[in-house]
Design a binder for these strands. Structure first.
Lengths: 206, 206
DNA sequence: AACATATCGAACCGATAGGTACAGTTCGAT
DNA sequence: ATCGAACTGTACCTATCGGTTCGATATGTT
């Protein structure tokens, strides 16, 4: 089964348990006992793998950031027309941002940002910034193809606006209403609205 | 000085101290000792006025919500032209949202939303929703005056889009970078960008 | 068989948390 | 002069926190 195995298996188990507990309670309110119990592991084992609660928290968040980043880069858009591209972007982004895990992580990281500034920055880069980087590239391709006209704004500014327009309203709502669950219909309707507005502002006149 | 006075003075002192401590450390990490010390008051006095730490936290947040609401309603816009109106709206909103106090409160409330759902909802209504309500009214007046054309969207949807476009990018950045401070120039530039985009989408063609 | 490693379980440590108890003090009102 | 409410200071209670220690046990390797 397991004991004397050179187990980094246990390390992963602990990390998963810690993730659940931290995302559920935040850093301060989470206790190492809860994590140990959730992992089904003895307390000594936890501290054999991670020296302190803080380091364990950092390990959890960094792992989550990496998975975010690799998940974003795997997304590929084959644009047949700008409108379809924008729809796909908006829906994909909202699916990620409004997932229970992402909302929980956002809550915790924002709440603990004063205590873990570097960590908050890493999340900022791995999450929102990565999205904007990708959107910038796709939108500037569409502009090169003559389908969009930013009217003097940079592609990055337009992409920033679009990403924030898509994200912020629903994200804020569900950040502050943790027991409510977003519906697919609501997501799609808001995505539609965002695409409509963006195209009204930036669709090239032909 | 004070003692046997029927003092709600002390209650206010304690509330102020609690506000500072809670906004600085969040709920879980804040201690009643810190609050007592900050207020320059004995521990017994704190518990004479507020039965538990939780109730004290709730009192702090509700007071802050009320002050938000009354502060919002006091704002008056005398628009001479839509563009000026949008500029004023954007700058005013950003000034509020990016103030250190508002950022700290947002961090705490988002972080503790799972533990205090009703409180988070009250904040949602007193903050973001109040802003959107006001923006909706002003924008629909501008639409009635023939200066805006929402192209089938409701005034509330347009106002929601504008408010979120204005707020989200910078707010997210400073939520996750607590030690950085927004500059007036940055605020005004982003406000300008938002007005530009909004007008490109919704300015009535004459 | 023997050893190293990983784990367990539970006791244990010092610190600190939220909250209470209580004896004494200061004031305003009667 | 007295009374009672508000307040202070401090000691105290109990629970729990993060973290350590240690003996027992079970395994894989040699």
């Amino acid at each position: 089964m397991s004991p004397a195995a050179p187990s980094n298996q246990k390390a992963r188990t602990i990390l998963q348990a810690a993730r659940k507990v931290f995302l559920e309670h935040g850093f301060s309110a989470a206790t190492t006992d809860m994590i140990q119990q959730q992992a089904g592991v003895s307390k000594s084992t936890v501290y054999a793998h991670y020296p302190t609660k803080e380091k364990l928290f950092i390990a959890v968040v960094e792992a989550e950031c990496e998975s975010f980043l690799s998940g974003m880069q795997r997304i590929e858009f084959q644009p047949n027309g700008v409108e379809a591209l924008l729809h796909q972007l908006a829906n994909t982004y909202l699916d990620i941002v409004l997932s229970p895990v992402a909302l929980a992580q956002y809550r915790v990281l924002v709440g603990e940002a004063p205590k873990f500034p570097e960590l908050a920055h890493r999340f900022y880069q791995a999450g929102p910034r990565a999205m904007i980087r990708q959107a910038t590239e796709l939108l500037s391709r569409a502009a090169e193809a003559g389908e969009l006209d930013f009217g003097g704004l940079s592609a990055e500014t337009a992409a920033t606006a679009f990403a924030n327009l898509v994200r912020s309203e629903l994200q804020q709502h569900y950040l502050l209403h943790p027991e409510a669950r977003p519906s697919r219909a609501q997501i799609e309707q808001w995505a539609e609205t965002c695409v409509f507005i963006f195209l009204r502002a930036f669709a090239a006149k032909r």
